[in-house]
Design a protein around this nucleic acid. Sequence first.
DNA 1: GTATGATTCAAACAGTCGTCTGAACCACCC
DNA 2: GGGTGGTTCAGACGACTGTTTGAATCATAC
Lengths: 226, 226
Amino acid sequence: MSTNDTKDRIISAAERLFAERGFAGTSLRTVTSEAGVNLAAVHYHFGTKDALLQAVFERRVAPVNKQRLQRLDELERHAGANGPELEEVLEAFLSPIMHLKRDLEGEGMVWSRFIGRVYSEPLEIVEKLIHEKFEEVGRRFVAALASTLPHLSDAEIVERLQFTIGVMIHTLIDLHRIALPGGGTQDRGPATLPHMIRFLAAGFRAPSTDDQAVAASKRIPQVRAS
Amino acid sequence: MSTNDTKDRIISAAERLFAERGFAGTSLRTVTSEAGVNLAAVHYHFGTKDALLQAVFERRVAPVNKQRLQRLDELERHAGANGPELEEVLEAFLSPIMHLKRDLEGEGMVWSRFIGRVYSEPLEIVEKLIHEKFEEVGRRFVAALASTLPHLSDAEIVERLQFTIGVMIHTLIDLHRIALPGGGTQDRGPATLPHMIRFLAAGFRAPSTDDQAVAASKRIPQVRAS
DNA sequence: GTATGATTCAAACAGTCGTCTGAACCACCC
DNA sequence: GGGTGGTTCAGACGACTGTTTGAATCATAC
């Protein structure tokens, strides 16, 4: 079927170009010429540019979120009385999207940049898409984290999960723009995920900042290096 | 002097609009009509749209970085034998940019979104600007963090500082797009900075992930909640 | 074969984009 | 006064934008 061929080629080209130049910075003519199809094919198959973005978005985000929930389900099934470990929950959340990067080999690197880029894009459609696609995932993981981290209030869990998303997005975009000595050039590749998890898990385990909770469990000693 | 008046009004309008709609999504005609000046004034004062972005960028980034370095200088002057605390270093890095948000009252919120947004924008100028404006800051803070965290290799310091920047950018953009229960609506405001610092400091103190270092100091016990 | 519906095509639509021009305006100095 | 240099102005430049059109082409079913 040549239909899906054209459709897929448009989506792939759009994914690649949106990742490189952003949504507003990419014209449909660039997309169609890169895909080797006619300009009008976009409007025949998708209707509008916004709908194309949505199609690009949904092609990969659905599998990622499905995998996240599957992993979490598995964790909760096989966990002991205390529930799953914090590191396991973080791994369930991060690894589906981080692994996509490697699994697709080339295409995946493009997509991870696309999602990171698009996430920062000031568009209503993006707002809507993210809201509806991540609602269940957000709810489930906040609950899982909350049961792993009873010393934190729900508001704190949410806040720290936002920090986690910040780290994730920034790692996905993978620009490492600030000139750090030795930074930006090397690609730590598959090791990045365990590094993220270790960093984030320690952050989640930090004492509560809620005034009440702080007053209650005055000063849990922190691990000091050296 | 009406010159600086026009120039400043253009910069302010551009800052506000870039923050809301991104660079590619904002036209010069929108900027000039919002600023109440003639379209050609942009090219008279700045030359090109790119140069305008640069001017917007530099107006605030220079003071922020200067403040960062001043704070770090002070810390290192008054520190004991062990050097400044990790939390103090993080505070020196984050608070100038996070406080701008409150200090400018309205304008500041706009700028913080601008910087967050622009940072994610796929433009060569942005690449160049960030590279040259943050080089010294990056170098100094990596060094300061390294002396505070002797258990980490330089590569790990850089990586974790990248995580920190991810948290910072995401907090600055302040969209909290993923639908989390109770997330996105409330504004924790001035409390956000201490929360970030606590989270990030714990992350930095997490054991090394370097294979050698891990082998050497096998398993530093982690603080467990509950 | 012809008819039918889906798909592709070149061409044009009305706007908007960043940029540039040349005249008008201004405050200031001689 | 006239002149000078910085600044603002309306208007236009060609190029590019997302979108639409109507005819041409294709595969399939009868």
